[in-house]
Nucleic acid binder design. Structure first.
Lengths: 351, 351
DNA sequence: TCTCGTCCAGACAACGTTGTCTCGCCGTCG
DNA sequence: CGACGGCGAGACAACGTTGTCTGGACGAGA
């Protein structure tokens, strides 16, 4: 059996206010008033409208309503993240969704995969649909192309990374301080040679974390050995290889600081393959599920993705509600979760 | 500095075809023709329109276009999953997003949290926005309320679970066969007492997996011991407690079959706490990240979430393209991934 | 030269809804 | 008894766009 009807019939099949008005023997405008809960309608007529609407299965057409309404709200916001399938992005989306839902707003989403071109494409696609606002993790480093849109009244909030060349609200983790905490934790356990494994240094968060790493070493008056630093580990394979290379050095690191989720996991895997996971200490940036039941548990600097998404959405809605105060960047603190891997000492090397 | 302008100005700030037409000294309709790439426009006038559009930063208003167009397409689909933050749901969403994007379609999403009331609310919210189609993991067991919508021409495809009381396309994993494979794998390794830990039995997939468990035991002419079966483990705590209770039985199971992601992880955690993870065999339904680097690695029946999401979206678009063949359920096979936990034998008990 | 057909731009209406204005009704007050 | 005010319903236009139709210009063929 075919599913539903063909295009032409489909259109006529959905009742409009006109149909409801005809059935109730009233004008379209009165139906509109009832649907929008305007109080100046005779209660008897209102029930007549409601009965007719129920009978026909009438549902308001939000796109038409949006077109005509003076506030022009679509009750829809757009959310662009790095990759909807990645746990961090997924947590951001879910948190924003919950805030949006409490206001009857739905969320359109898109994954950018760190591609600035895709960022622009998807932003345009969202704007063409006249979303009320935008929450995004920018992929590119220049969002100045959004200035006109911002001027046109579209509200936007950046999450996880601040916008480039554009004044707008942002909600970010305290990346630099988190990295400092991680490195100081390793230093406190006696490590002096601490490797850094990070994602593309062009990503602002990666740069901030690397900055924290450098600062913590400097503060401890330790030299920064370039041999222990590896950037641009965007694939799992690259990250695993980097770990192997670091540990094959004449003077290998006794501890690792991994600046991102996937890098951390890749490092775990590599250490296990080398059977050094009980020797080489490790602290990762960003928590991940099951980090606690590995052996040893993986110590991490946890970001509060929930809070990031929630606050971003809240800021967006406060802007939509008319908050015109100065734009600002809100920083959400990170938290060190010791689970074992970060508490290994250099002495535990190959007993 | 305030961000953007206030509502009233915002509206006027965005140029329309009228503005472009005025600047180009042509009629609105000609602008429309150029924007839509109609060929019967004088090339010179077309470039005049394009220049004017670029100059003003004109972007078409998709909601207005949708209202007027005969096909009524919004280039937007809706996707309802269990929880956008859950890896399985997130993978479904990402896969569907990629298919949609290749056709210039964006995705509105919502999380149902197994709540049928929320399912109806969100379906309505999506329909009010006139999405072209719906991809959903149903939360309730009765989708007959969608029949009218289906008749009105809205295409819908169900993923992971078939719809109840409604004829519609569905794309599901082979849950029963997957469960049979899991149990037979444990039987082949010598287990005779195999525990079942599952989510709410009212969820169709959980029921199908339990059915497979029962069938495999029956086929092996083994009795089904009700003491070894625990349903409705919807929280991590409940699942961990169930494991402890099962292992505290006078005749504890030597192997566990966990019928869902979160239950599997909870069971891992519980076994580790009891220090029995090297003794009690386990196969889980649904793969999860890091299952391979635990010790032992967790053997799982992997679902292909990517394929589910991708195929569902493809089916939806083929319907939108006019495919009116009979609705059908497509089954995506599962795959046993042995990693260690499923290959433990009863003999390995406390050597 | 006239007719006819082709080609393309614009006038007009319409999509489903809401903002604005008008108008009729009723009750009240002078 | 007439004027007035308030209330509520409907007529009309408009949001930004596209489908349909008209009409003018132009070229070709008789």
């Amino acid at each position: 059996m075919p599913q539903g009807e063909s295009g032409a019939d489909a259109r006529s099949a959905r009742p409009t206010m006109k149909d409801v008005a005809a059935l109730a023997g009233l004008s379209i405008k009165t139906v509109s008033r009832v649907v929008n809960g305007v109080s100046t309608v005779d209660p008897e007529l209102a029930t007549r409208v409601q009965d007719a609407a129920r009978k026909l299965g009438y549902r308001p057409n939000l796109t038409a309503s949006n077109l005509r309404r003076s506030d022009g709200r679509t009750l829809t916001i757009g959310m662009l993240v790095e990759d909807a399938a990645n746990p961090f992005s997924a947590a951001l989306m879910r948190a924003a969704e919950d805030i949006a839902r409490s206001r009857g707003v739905l969320v359109l989403f898109g994954s950018l995969d760190e591609d600035p071109a895709r960022e622009r494409e998807l932003v345009e696609a969202l704007l063409d649909r006249r979303v009320d606002g935008l929450v995004m993790v920018p992929a590119g480093r220049d969002q100045s192309y959004l200035a006109a849109e911002q001027q046109a009244g579209t509200r936007m909030v950046f999450v996880d990374r601040e916008p480039g060349l554009l004044g707008a609200d942002a909600v970010v983790s305290d990346n630099r301080q988190g990295a400092i905490t991680a490195v100081e934790h390793l230093l406190a356990h006696g490590h002096r040679r601490i490797g850094y494994l990070g994602d593309q240094i062009t990503i602002p968060t990666a740069a901030q974390r690397f900055d924290g790493y450098q600062y913590a070493l400097e503060y401890a008056r330790l030299p920064l050995d370039p041999d222990l630093v590896r950037h641009d580990l965007h694939s799992t394979e690259a990250a695993e290889e980097a770990v192997e290379q670091l540990l094959a050095l004449p003077e290998p690191p006794t501890a690792l600081f991994t600046s991102q989720n996937l890098v951390t996991i890749a490092a775990c895997r590599a250490l296990r393959r080398l059977r050094k996971h009980q020797e080489v200490a490790m602290v990762g940036f960003d928590d991940f599920p099951l980090a606690d039941i590995l052996e040893p548990g993986i110590s991490v600097i946890a970001q509060d993705a929930d809070a990031l998404g929630r606050i971003a959405a809240q800021v967006l809605f406060s802007r939509l509600d008319g908050d015109t105060s100065a734009t600002r960047t809100m920083t959400v603190p990170t938290r060190l979760i010791p689970r074992g891997s970060g508490e290994l000492t250099p002495r535990s090397v190959r007993a």
